[in-house]
Structures are given as C-alpha cells and as structure tokens.
Design a protein around this nucleic acid. Structure first.
Lengths: 160, 160
DNA sequence: TTGGCAGCGTTACAATATCACATGAGCACT
DNA sequence: AGTGCTCATGTGATATTGTAACGCTGCCAA
C-alpha cells in the first residue's frame, strides 16, 4: 500500500484507509517488539479516525470517555509512545498529533496543513531536506521539522 | 550588510551586530509607517541581546523589570507586532521568539537551532521551499515553517 | 518468592496563550 | 479648546498545553 496510499485530501474510503494504516502499524510494532497496550491502541485508533491533527486534551477526553484515565499524562504518554515508534507525528504548528499515514516505512515527513478543512497530509520531505542542508552551511541537522500551512486542492478549488 | 551579516554561530562583535540589525529594523519600520512604541522597541532590544530564542514569559519578565506591564498580553502583543512587521520570528519548536537577523529584506527563513548552545540562526529556505512545492502535489502553500534542530559548527567541533 | 521494571493512574503544578474590559495617548476635524 | 476616533497599553481572569513526582499493579526472570 505504501506508495498507493490514498492522499488524505482526496476522496477515499476512509474505513479501508484506516484499517490498512492500522494494520501496517501493527506489523511495524510486531517487528520492533514494543507493546501495544489497550490505551496505546485506542489512542492510535482515535488518531486514525480522521486526517486531522488532534490536541492531547482532545485525545484525553476520548480516552477518558472510554474508561481510561482522565489525567493529562495518560494521553501524553500514549502519544509520546506512538511518536517514538513512528506511528504518529507531532505537528508543532498546531500543538497537536496526527496518525502517521505511512507507518510501513521510515520517512522524513513534511506536513501539509489545510487551514480550511483542518486536514493534514504528509509529503516527502527528502528533497527539501537536501536543499536545506545545502543552505545550512556546516550546521549538523539532526531533526528537521517542515510544516506548510495553506489550502488543500479541494478547498482551494472551492475557494476560487 | 545583508549578505555579509555575521553568522549567528560564529564569533563576532555582537555590539555591532545588534546595532546594525536594530538600525535595519528601524529603517524598515520607517518605510512601513508602523509605530515603534517604547514597549515594542524595548522588546526588540531584548531579543537582540542574544542569538537565542526567548520565551514570551522571559521577555515579559524583562519588560516588567523595566517598568512596563507585567501581564502576558503585554509581551504577546509586542512580540506579535514584531513578527507581523518581520522584525522577529516565532520558533515553533521552542515556543519562543527570536529577533530577525535580516530585517533589511524579505526572506523565507529556515531556523537552525543548536541543541547545545541554544543559539538560533537563519538559513535561506528558498531552495527547500521550491523542493517542497514539488513534493506537495497541488497543495497551495501559504506559510512554510522549516526548523532544524542539531549542532552548530562550533558545538559540533567541540563535541567530536 | 522475590526483586525489578514497565505501564498506568493520580495529585499537583508549571508553562504557554488568550479573552474581555478599562484607561490613556495621539490625531483629525471643527 | 472641544469632540470623536483609533490605536496602544495595562489589568484581571481564564484557557490551553505540558511535566514532575509518587504509588499501585501485573508480569517476568532469577
């Protein structure tokens, strides 16, 4: 599914999208040996329900409603775990988290955030990262954050 | 001074650097017609004292010590103003603000954040932005955030 | 069986950011 | 000078986001 992953902005059967992404995530975890406990799994499912990024407290509310703990560390720990495992990403610009859309492979994602429909997609940051290293003149880049705010194709069309 | 601006990571006469950058900022404001009130000017000076990014509350503390208001909006308003005018930037990764090092010209900055000495420099994000637009496949980018965390050349040398 | 440890939950708190409202300074027009 | 306007400032209150610290439990290996 990797390269044919439906784009988050396009129309697609999200039930399938979600299930496929979840399965890829499970596979990845099985390999790494990390434990997908109930809170963690539920957290991932919550993130996968939409292509929006969710705040930690929004996730926490959902978890609490499902009978899990209702204190911030519960959500933060689960989210941090998912991020560490590469199953979710943190979107700095929104102080929020989004499920990874390509958990089946390592990648350097750039985020595309639609300011109208709030959806978030991932683009390949590789070329941009290369370009940046050129400009960076000797700076040793360890982690790179690239986030674009704008309009997704459907919203742009509707806007015009 | 534009292209010969001393790099924030290198040794340089910061008094000169600061004065030159401040002057460029003043020139820019004079053109735009915006008002550089005392709080705003002081805020800019505070940011210019170092090449670190400062949190809003750190700035607020300094402002309060100088006799300005001591409530958060005082700092946020001044900082927002500077950002709007292009005289400062917000560093998302740090939830902090840094003076713009090149206020004399419009630019799309990428930030280079040294995790050791905490200094922040700006690199040209132009090429990376172009590369990203290629990857973004029809997404209409309005604002682009590029932030690299790593080691600046001096710190990397010392580390090895 | 017992010691260690990861995971979870809780309390408490720290750090960051915004809202809403009142005051005051400067300016244009009369 | 007086009036009304706009912008900037200051304040209190509150919202949002994020951590530290501690205890309990269940699991597992020695």
């Amino acid at each position: 599914m990797s390269t044919s992953q439906p784009d988050a902005f396009g129309d697609h059967d999200h039930a399938v999208c979600r299930a496929a992404t979840l399965q890829a995530a499970l596979d990845r975890l099985a390999q790494s040996g990390a434990r997908l406990t109930p809170v963690r799994k539920r957290t991932l499912e919550i993130l996968l329900e939409s292509h929006r990024a969710m705040g930690a407290y929004e996730v926490l509310g959902r978890l609490a409603a499902d009978g899990f703990g209702r204190q911030p560390p519960v959500a933060y720990r689960a989210l941090d775990f998912l991020v560490e495992q590469g199953l979710a990403h943190r979107v700095q610009r929104l102080n929020a988290f989004a499920a990874c859309l390509h958990p089946d492979r390592d990648h350097a994602p750039a985020f595309l955030i639609c300011r109208n429909c709030q959806r978030v997609a991932e683009a390949d940051a590789g070329p941009a990262a290369c370009a940046l290293r050129q400009s960076a003149q000797g700076f040793h880049v360890e982690r790179l954050t690239i986030e674009a705010l704008g309009l997704c194709p459907p919203c742009a069309a509707q806007d015009a």
